[in-house]
């Protein structure tokens, strides 16, 4: 099989979707230039024409509303927001319209829309160029939210998002663009709402998503060398949330750490912890612990960024805390 990078996998999924279905088009900022999207949309305008690859004015609200309207009218748009932060200007059409439409009209009208948004943080960019807002979106009934952590998933989840007849938020992460994995050439879909066990282990479960799944794997490797056998679950979708896969794991390990790149308060990890404790309280040998962002906006200074973003080492520490292992620093 071929190895592709995460960025290449996103690109290939776009190209295949555009190629096989004339209803597919892409709209958003940064489509004709690598500035915003890296290589993930490179030269698609040349291959499929500027009519189907629409690099838009700085108008998040209107482009989002228009993509929703086009989807309702029978097209299959991929709406692109090069950063989650910018997508906030379009939160009204996403939350009030796209998310509601099916229920509101008893599934007689659908919004088959992929909203792709990128988490792009670090590099002293600060509070308005860093946010990971998946929990906020997953909070909304009527939206599905997928977050690939590997190149294989980046392709398969984009295709699944397109094949779904509902609005799906697809969130990719700039920090993963250069990671690689085997990626089949065919146009395959990964089921939305199903997690995957990335690493089997007996001592403790780490439930994670997106970039933190990658960090959890690093932590798992390091802990293995210290004699700790970690099970890593990558949930792949924030919504629907695959609680069953965690319950099964926790039944075996009795311990759970949740690792997420979003804020801790009212966040993705909070939802996972609550859902697990509701259903598996008696399987747990100790409290569920979370590794997340602290409850502040992203700072700029390198001295503060370093402390702000959680990494594999933070997961490692938290695993040890859960297992009551006092680490000798």
């Amino acid at each position: 099989m071929r190895t592709l990078s995460y960025a290449q996998a996103i690109h290939e999924a776009h190209a295949q979707l555009l190629d096989r279905d004339p209803r597919v088009f892409v709209i958003g900022q940064g489509l004709w230039n690598p500035w915003y999207a890296g290589t993930t949309l490179k030269d698609l305008d040349k291959a499929f024409g500027c009519d189907r690859i629409l690099d838009s004015p700085v108008s998040e609200n209107a482009t989002t509303g228009a993509a929703i309207g086009a989807a309702i009218a029978g097209m299959r748009p991929i709406l692109f927001h090069p950063r989650m932060d910018f997508m906030l200007l379009a939160i009204d059409p996403i939350v009030n319209q796209a998310a509601n439409w099916s229920y509101l009209f008893s599934a007689q009208v659908s919004v088959p829309l992929v909203i792709r948004s990128v988490i792009n943080r670090g590099g002293e960019q600060g509070a308005q160029h860093s946010q990971a807002l998946h929990a906020m979106l997953a909070h909304i009934p009527g939206l599905k939210v997928v977050m690939p952590s590997t190149a294989y998933d980046a392709k398969g989840l984009l295709i699944a998002a397109m094949e779904d007849n509902n609005p799906v938020i697809y969130i990719d992460d700039r920090w993963l663009y250069e990671t690689t994995s085997d990626v089949p050439e065919d146009c395959y879909a990964i089921p939305i709402g199903k997690g995957i066990v990335r690493r089997e282990g007996r001592d403790i479960t780490i439930a994670s998503i997106s970039y933190m799944a990658e960090e959890a794997m690093k932590a798992g490797l390091s802990l293995e060398k210290q004699g700790i056998d970690v099970e890593v679950i990558d949930l792949r979708s924030a919504k629907p949330l695959d609680i069953d896969i965690i319950l099964k794991s926790v039944k075996k390990t009795g311990r759970l750490v949740v690792a997420d790149g979003g804020w801790k308060m009212f966040g993705f990890a909070a939802e996972v912890a609550a859902s697990v404790s509701e259903r598996a309280f008696h399987d747990l040998k100790g409290p569920i612990l979370r590794v997340c962002l602290p409850d502040i906006p992203a700072p700029t200074s390198r001295a503060l960024e370093e402390r702000y973003y959680p990494r594999a080492s933070d997961i490692e520490k938290t695993v040890k805390k859960s297992l009551n292992i006092v680490s000798v620093a």
């Binding site: 932060d85 910018f86 200007l89 002293e124 960019q125 600060g126 509070a127 308005q128 160029h129 700072p299 700029t300 200074s301 390198r302 001295a303 503060l304």
Partner: peptide, 29 residues
Amino acid sequence: GKAGGCSKGRGGSMHLVAPEVGLFGTVPL
């Protein structure tokens, strides 16, 4: 990115402030 900066290292180039002269904040959105 220093503590002596106008936003004390929390803002960088895109978030400048000088309330003493009527600049209550510049932001990049």
